[in-house]
Write a protein that binds this DNA or RNA. Sequence first.
DNA 1: ACACGATTAAAACAGATGTTTTAATCATAC
DNA 2: GTATGATTAAAACATCTGTTTTAATCGTGT
Lengths: 211, 211
Amino acid sequence: MSQPDTKQRILDAAEHLFARNGYHATSLRGITTTADANLAAVNYHFGSKEALLEAVIVRRLDPLNEIRRGQLEALLQKAELAGELPSCREVLRAFVEPTLRLRQQGSEAEDFIALIGRTLAEPRGIAMSIFLRHMQPLLQRIFQALALSLPALTEQDLFWRMHFTMGCLSHIMRCHERYSMVPDNVNIDLPVDELIEHFLDFTTAGMEVAR
Amino acid sequence: MSQPDTKQRILDAAEHLFARNGYHATSLRGITTTADANLAAVNYHFGSKEALLEAVIVRRLDPLNEIRRGQLEALLQKAELAGELPSCREVLRAFVEPTLRLRQQGSEAEDFIALIGRTLAEPRGIAMSIFLRHMQPLLQRIFQALALSLPALTEQDLFWRMHFTMGCLSHIMRCHERYSMVPDNVNIDLPVDELIEHFLDFTTAGMEVAR
DNA sequence: ACACGATTAAAACAGATGTTTTAATCATAC
DNA sequence: GTATGATTAAAACATCTGTTTTAATCGTGT
C-alpha cells in the first residue's frame, strides 16, 4: 500500500462526516476528499455506501459491546457469589460507563459516539437495522439483569423505564458540547466521570422510584 | 382555488414524509406526488425546501408553545397565591402533557411529534436552528420554573437533569410504536395518560433525588 | 527484470435533486 | 364577455448523487 491504509482513512472520514451531518447529507465525494482518496475507493474496498456505514459502526460497536458484556457478567457473578441481588446502578453503569469513556480515547471515538446517538434517533433509518443487529443480544441481557435488580417492578414498568434511560443516554451521546440554552454559570465541559455519576444519579432514581 | 388548499396538502405531505424519513431523505417530488400537487408548487408557495420545513414546524409548534406557556403560568400563579413553591412534577407536566396529548388529535399531529423528536436528535441540522428560534423563550421560562421548584439544586445540576429529561422526552416522541427489543408481555400501546404519568414518575424522581 | 495481483486514478454512467422558466388555466371583478 | 392577477402545469436547468468501467500504477515474489 502506498499510503498508510486507505481503508482506515476512509473509515475515519466517514465516521466523522456521518456523525456530523448524518448519513443522507454525507456524499461519497465528501468522504473521499476528506480521506484524500479516490472516489472509486469506497466501492472498491467496501462495496457500497451502505456497507461503508455498517463497517464504520461495527468497527467500534463490537469491541465496545464486548467490554460492556464483560463488565456486566462480572458484576452479576460477584453479586451471585455474595448471595445478593445486583444493584440497578451498577447494571446501568456496566452499560453506560464503557460507552462514555470512549470519549477519553480522543476525538475519533467521540465521532462514533455521536453517530450512535444519531442512529438511535432515526427509527426507520438504514443505520438502525445495522445497529440493532449488533445490539439485540446485549440489550436483552441488560433487560434480564435489570429485572433481577428490580424485582418489585413489572416487566411492563421495567420496559418503559429502560426505554426512558436509553433515551437519556442517546441524548447525551449526540448532544455533547454545544447545546441550546445553557445558562451562563453552567459548565458544559463536565468531566466524563462526573457526567457518568450525574447520569446514574438521575436514571437510577427513575428506575427505582415506587409507583 | 380549485382543490381544497394546495398549500395545506403540501404541508401535510411534507410533515408526514419529513417525520418518517427525515429531511434529507425526502424529496420535493415525493412530497408533491403525495400531496397530489405540481412540483413547482412548493417553490411557488413556500420559496424553498428549507422554508417549507420551517412552515411545517411552525404551524404546530407555535400553538403548542402557547398552550404549554399558559399551563405553566397558571401553575406558577396558583402556587404563588397559595404561598407555596410549584412542584417539579407539575412544572414538567406543563411541558410534557400538551405535547403528548397531540397524539390524541389523530395521526397528523403524531407525525409532527415524531418530526420534532427527530429534530431534537440532529444537533447541527437545519431543523434545529428553526426549532430553537421558536423554543428558546419557553425553555428559559421552564428552566426558571424548575429552579424555583427545586431550590436545593445548583444551576449546574439542574441544567444536566433538565438535559436528561429533554432526552427522555425526545426519545419517546420519536420512538412511539414499533421499537426494538420489546418483550412479549409488554404492551407497547400504552394509553397517552398512562405514558405521561410513567414519564413524570421517572423524570421527577431523577430531578428530585439527593446527590 | 519480469510478471501478476492488488490498488489507485480518471472518466463516464444513468438517474435524482432543488430550482426556474414558460405557458396554460383558473377565479374573480369590471 | 373580457381583462387581470393568482394559481397550476410541463418542461428544462444545472448540479449532484452512487456506482461502473477502463487504464494506469504500485508492490511483491520469482
